[in-house]
Design a protein around this nucleic acid. Structure first.
Lengths: 182, 182
DNA sequence: CAACCTTTCCTATCACTAATAGGCATCCTA
DNA sequence: TAGGATGCCTATTAGTGATAGGAAAGGTTG
């Protein structure tokens, strides 16, 4: 089952997340298309397994980071890892952070994993001075915008992502409670 | 032909941009599915016409704005209109600013219209003090991130978009050349 | 040992999708 | 009035996700 999901990711990278075909996937793993229904109740269930797997990959990556020391630096290290993860696989980024499949919503169980990732970011940002949920929301949205612009307009490059640190500093300076600008 | 595109937008709003079916569209406009090929060479050609039409709608909206007076205020008015346009129709936003259809790329002619919209934003931002292309890029990406977060996580609400003016001020303050922070 | 049950996979089929082929009118123009 | 283009049709194709029902294998239990 894990190998089916891994192969599904390969096909998604090649043909886009919406271009994934069960016939092609079955052929790739040495089965016939209906046999996949032994493992997944529907195509959406496959997408759900991929969603959970993608969040597992991300969490694994983030857990390997060294986040000791200065808390602003920790935010930067975390966000760089996050952005790198996102831009290195556009199809995965699409499934995890957009809604490209009509009718597909991750299950509660899979969505929970995504919340874990988000809560780590929230904790770090809070520790670095972003007190309000509002400020955290907007920061996360800004980083996501950077990622999408990078993937859409300069895939493989860094025209947008190279400004991540600068924007992080700008944002944290602006919304640090004690040092708010006049 | 314009009425086919208009009906296609209705169906896209109802079933998602990727859930648009030529059979359903034909039924809605009183034709059979193959007859649509009189007007569009392929489904992608239909998407291309919708892409061009969406940009036309946006340009129309932006051209109706009063952008006299203070140039920072002009940026805010412009961006508010842009964000409102985006969030009021998620399917349209998806087709115009993301790549949700595997294999679909707008034609050069349609893409040109999109560039017109972008260039108006660039001119306004330049006039308001954002000199470098880099700063403009990042600002646009930030606004797009705000839009996507709003649509994905709070459709119909304003949890993200209500901070647009504040973020615009922050960004313009930060990157105004004469008043760059130390 | 033998009966059963579950798991895994298959073939065949269904309804639906975009796309193509070819025919039949209608209408404009030379 | 003939030719040609236009608009729309029916019929069909290959491909999609999903379902039905059966065959074979393995394990468990009487």
């Amino acid at each position: 089952m894990a190998s089916i999901v891994a192969t599904a990711w390969e096909l998604a990278r090649a043909h886009g997340i919406g271009g994934l075909s069960l016939h092609a996937l079955a052929r790739e793993v040495g089965l016939r298309q209906p046999s996949l229904y032994t493992y997944f109740d529907s195509k959406h269930a496959l997408y759900d397994a991929m969603f959970a797997d993608g969040n597992r990959q991300l969490l694994e990556r983030l857990d390997a980071l060294e986040l000791l020391g200065d808390r602003r630096e920790a935010v930067k290290v975390f966000m760089r890892a996050f952005v790198n993860f996102a831009v290195e696989d556009p199809a995965r980024n699409q499934l995890l952070f957009q809604r490209p499949i009509p009718g597909f919503e991750p299950s509660a169980e899979s969505y929970e994993r995504a919340q874990v990732v988000l809560s780590r970011a929230v904790d770090l940002l809070r520790a670095a001075g972003l007190e309000s949920q509002t400020d955290v929301d907007c920061f996360v949205a800004m980083v996501a915008g950077l990622i999408d612009a990078q993937i859409s307009n300069d895939p493989g490059g860094d025209r947008w992502t190279r400004h991540l640190d600068r924007l992080t500093d700008m944002y944290l300076d602006e919304f640090k409670p004690r040092r708010r600008r006049q």
